[in-house]
Design a binder for these strands. Structure first.
Ligand code: SF4
Ligand code: SF4
Lengths: 137, 137
DNA sequence: ATAAATTACTACCTCAGTATAGCATTTGCA
DNA sequence: TGCAAATGCTATACTGAGGTAGTAATTTAT
């Protein structure tokens, strides 16, 4: 499962923040550390700020800080704020309305995979990504 | 996990064929039954034919038939012939080279989900999609 | 006060996936 | 033989994700 580029950048970003000792992060600094296109990352930061995951501090000495506790930020809600979460939780064939009564031919084969994926997205938080032994962000 | 439109169409197509009593299928017929844009589906059929999953019969009374046993056609190899299979088997953050020694922050959280997904794609075949109780294709 | 450092906004460019259109080619049946 | 029914090929248009550029707005250090 590959996330959209934007979602991937965002998770790397938040994961970098939670694994750092710093409190305030500047866009330029982050784009350099994470090797994400500067202007693109800035857009992401602004959006994350609007979504309430981080808080922006404007002006000199400004930057971004977490706006809520990282253990309250699930992968699910991050991805959902960026793209259609249904791309991952909805299903393989992209039917709109699915049910046990009106399944497609893949339904029962895919069900257990879907459960696992759903659970992963709903229960994993940014705080869970804190770890000493990370090689790359 | 949502497949690309093309992959989705393709699996619906093959699944429809394996669940039908007919032997030969015409493009026009399939596009109507599956409500897939005619010209687009024709392109897919030609590609599937080139990939060797189905065989085309040209001329009057022509159409398409399975070129190999459906229990030899895994979701994996179908998807792989259409788009980059790495979109699903490769990982969340889209890093090129991943290893236990050089993991990203999501690695250990995602590992079991990935295993499940990989296994699903590698072991599920078109023949497995044969089923009496399918509501939609 | 002013300059420097920072984020916010708007408009545009590019590319791959999706979709459409028209014509060429093959083959069986009347 | 010739027409009709089918697939094959090529060129074009549309759309949204990804990415770039320039300018405006905000705040603090000096
Ligand atoms: S597998 Fe089930 S939930 Fe997914 S598209 Fe098919 S019917 Fe819907
Ligand atoms: S989760 Fe593991 S395999 Fe996936 S991108 Fe991260 S390091 Fe690579």
């Amino acid at each position: 499962m590959k996330l959209s580029k934007t979602s991937g950048y965002t998770i790397r970003l938040l994961s970098y923040m939670i694994n750092s000792d710093l409190q305030v992060f500047q866009a330029g600094f982050l784009s350099e550390k994470l090797r994400i296109p500067d202007k693109y990352l800035r857009k992401i930061l602004t959006d994350l700020s609007k979504s309430g995951f981080i808080k922006s501090i404007r002006g000199r000495e400004g930057g971004y800080v977490f706006a809520k506790n990282a253990n309250k930020i699930t992968l699910w809600c991050v991805i959902d704020s960026i793209e259609n979460i249904n791309n991952y939780t909805g299903c393989v064939l992209g039917f709109g309305e699915c049910s046990e009564e009106n399944p497609c031919s893949l339904h029962y084969e895919y069900l257990p995979v879907r459960e696992k994926l759903l659970n992963f997205l709903k229960t994993t938080t940014i705080a869970d990504l804190k770890n000493e032994n990370i090689g790359k962000f």
